[in-house]
């Protein structure tokens, strides 16, 4: 039988820790969450740049340059 996990009066937030998948709102929280839950290593060769302007520039180059 599985353990029943319910909040009790001692439940609490752990001290926060840095996100492994950077901090791109709307993208990396969900990606990190799913990767952790499913135990799947990310197959990308390198992380995306966290600066959105730089990331957008690279995306546009990928779309319009070859």
């Amino acid at each position: 039988m599985g353990r029943k996990m319910e909040l009790k009066d001692q439940h609490a937030w752990d001290p926060p820790e840095p996100m492994a998948e950077g901090g791109i709102a709307g993208l990396s929280p969900y990606l990190q969450d799913r990767l952790e839950r499913e135990g799947i290593p990310k197959s990308a060769p390198a992380p995306l740049p966290q600066d959105q302007d730089q990331l957008l520039e690279e995306l546009l180059q990928a779309a319009f340059t070859e």
């Binding site: 909040l7 937030w13 752990d14 950077g22 709102a25 990396s28 929280p29």
Partner: peptide
Amino acid sequence: GQVARLRDPSGAELARAYYTPT
């Protein structure tokens, strides 16, 4: 760029919160 985990008294994780200002 932080993640916090909510745990019950047994240490089981119940929820996560991600802080990602944009």
